[in-house]
Amino acid sequence: MKWHKTRKGQQAIVIVCFVTVPLLLLMLFTYIPFGQMVQYSFFKMNYLTPPDKREFVGFKNYIDVFTRDDCFKALKLSAYYCVGALFQLALALFLATILSFKVKGGNVFKGMMFFPYLISGIAIGFIFKFFYTRGFVFDSILQMIGFDLENLPYWLKDQRVNNWSLVATSVWRYFGQNMVLFIGAIMSVDAELYEAASLDGANKLQQFRHIILPSIKTIVTLNVILSITGSLSAFEPPYVITGGGNGTGTYFVIMNEIAHVTQKVGLASAMAVVLLIIIFVCTILQKAFFKYVFRDADSTDESYSAKKARKSRMRLGRKESGR
């Protein structure tokens, strides 16, 4: 019997056939360009330098990334966006919890809060440019509720507040999306659990703490990791609203400037590789962190269950519904 006519052989052929196309695409559009970029990062070159005139400089570009004051200063700005991301997740989780119970006009609210995510980042940039302009929308609203224009800062000019202004636009844009993801996860929690819990006299906060949060921990972890990674590579708000001026140039904006205006492609590639490594490290650290946090939560749960039979029954119910 020929191998390719056997069930196993057929299976293997089909698998190979189906896998080849996506793998080829993946190689062609992701890994080969990435490899090229890593290669560029060891050269001194601009876009139009012919390959034979590129000058190999070893790790000089990487050393530059770490010694130039603008690259890592820019990375510090990510702290603003990280804080923003955490606030955004907390807000999204809070609203998602409220909205997953019966609320009048819940769908309208959901729609309204998700809406910003559908607008293109460039359009949002323009919206907020006018929003923050002196004497325009934001200032007028604040004046209406009793603030004096004299005491208000220049939202985009004052370097003490302008990064927060930008972070706020990013929160405004993304919290709706986080919220919808959370609502989706919360919906999958068995409603009987809430009933059982309220029969046992658990209040809403306890329900959230002991039923909802453990049930959606995967999606919370995912959202946190995505948000933190996203805040390391924040680009659109500073690029569109301030053009990276006035101390709002994030790592990406600086990288763009170095690559496209100054045309130091090698240095910009090195910056990209460094950022990639930073993101890897952050993601791994977060994974480890969540593993630790949630393992802890589970073990306390168990210790509770040893003491209280009701709680243990509840947990069992949850596990069953989870499977």
Binding site: K129, F130, Y132, T133, R134, F136, Y154, L156, K157, N162, T242, G245, N246
Partner: peptide, 8 residues
């Protein structure tokens, strides 16, 4: 202008 960051 007062606020250069929002010129149009």
């Amino acid at each position: 202008e007062e606020d250069y960051s929002t010129t149009d």
